[in-house]
Simulated assay, not measured.
Amino acid sequence: MRLRARYVLAGGLELVADGVVEVDDGGVVVGVGRYTGGVAADLGNVVLMPQLVNGHVHVLDAAILDRDDMYIDDLVGWPHGVKYHVVRRLVERGRHTALLEKVARRMRRYGVGCALVYAEYAAGDVEAALRRWGIEAVVFQEAHGGFPSYPNVQVATPVDHPPEYLRQLRARYRLVSTHVSETEDCHEAGDLELALKVLDADVLVHLVHLTPEEVGQIPPSKTVVVNPRANAYFVGRVAPVPQLLHLKPLLGTDNVFMNEPDPWAEMRFLHAYAAAAGWRLEEREILSMATVWGWEKMRCVPPIEPGHRLRAIAVAAPYAGEKVLKFLVKRAAHTDLVAFVEGSSIEPPPS
């Protein structure tokens, strides 16, 4: 099957005008290039691009939607934050599954094909709900000071736990993640050193207060995730994204109770913040944070290139001009999403 589009973002988001993508019977890409004729399913005036990756999202805390009137630690700090009490009761009563379905459906509507999810409880239910809506889920179950029966774990911050416990987590689990230097208190307590040298976390989230010297301590093998909207709101500053680019950071939307889990909104915010801060941050870099760098770091949603199963979205192309990447980062929204392409299957977004 051959798919034609006005633009294709192939490989590392190289722009192919009047592009065509050929897939085999298994939905694997066997060729990408310019259309030169022949039979093709014409998707029309769209950009065919990889599905989006949400690099960090808490989905269960939708139970306290817009409860943002308290200090961050009182809201989300383990173990006494408001969300822990509310979400635990929700799960104990079995009322979390309907909420998860609603959140997963909304995430899919935004074009999300993969998400790195923090689950305070019920990680298996979280994973199942997202997968039912076509979202590949890398879920981290919160450890709560114990040893949950789930392959990936997270701790809210390594300063909450004794070093020996952190070492045991590293030894027992496939993937380990933690928030790092989200607040000044945790940064001053040395959370980066604990995260790197004791917990040896695979995924480091936030990094708001890190200095250039501290950024230099992070090995390239680690996955780092920034959450600009949540950080700007809760702590009044954003992670030093230009200093992190060599690590190929991912872009996350963080707490659903605070932010809609919409990567388009996150890209627009980061684009505007970068301009205001005088950062040299290219549109290709921002879009990579929400797409192809997810594949490089976590094997989430492959690029559109031969050898990979096609997992793409068709987004309405710019209505004027040729600055496609700028349009996608600065202007596009989920309302511009025309279709999901999974292999050779073309489906409309959820209504």
Score class of each variant (00 low, 15 high):
Thr157His: 10
Val32Asn: 08
Lys83Phe: 07
Glu164Ser: 15
Ala17His: 10
Arg174Met: 04
Val117Gln: 00
Pro348Ser: 12
Glu214Asn: 03
Glu182Cys: 07
Ser345Pro: 00
Ala201Thr: 00
Ala40Lys: 03
Gly27Leu: 08
His187Asp: 02
Trp264His: 13
Phe340Thr: 01
Ala143Met: 06
Glu136Val: 07
Leu196His: 00
Gln168Thr: 14
Ala41Ser: 14
Ala320Met: 11
Ala10Gln: 04
Pro151Arg: 10
Val47Lys: 05
Thr36Leu: 14
Ile64Thr: 12
Val155Ile: 13
Val315Cys: 11
Lys248Phe: 06
Glu142Lys: 14
Glu101Val: 04
Ser177Leu: 03
His56Trp: 11
Leu194Gln: 03
Gly124His: 06
Tyr118Ala: 14
Pro303Ile: 04
Val117Pro: 10
Gly216Gln: 00
Ala115Arg: 00
Glu213Gln: 15
Val198Pro: 00
Glu92Asp: 13
Glu120Thr: 11
Arg88Gly: 13
Glu127Arg: 15
Pro50Tyr: 02
Ala239Leu: 03
Leu192Trp: 02
Asn231Arg: 08
Asn227Pro: 03
Val176Trp: 06
Ile218Thr: 05
Pro148Asn: 06
Leu210Cys: 04
Pro240Tyr: 10
Pro228Trp: 00
Arg167Pro: 00
Pro263Asp: 01
Ile72Ala: 11
Tyr118Lys: 06
Lys326Glu: 15
Leu90Gly: 10
Leu169Gly: 12
Val16Met: 11
Ala123Gly: 13
Ala276Thr: 10
Glu164His: 14
Val59Leu: 15
Asp336Gln: 02
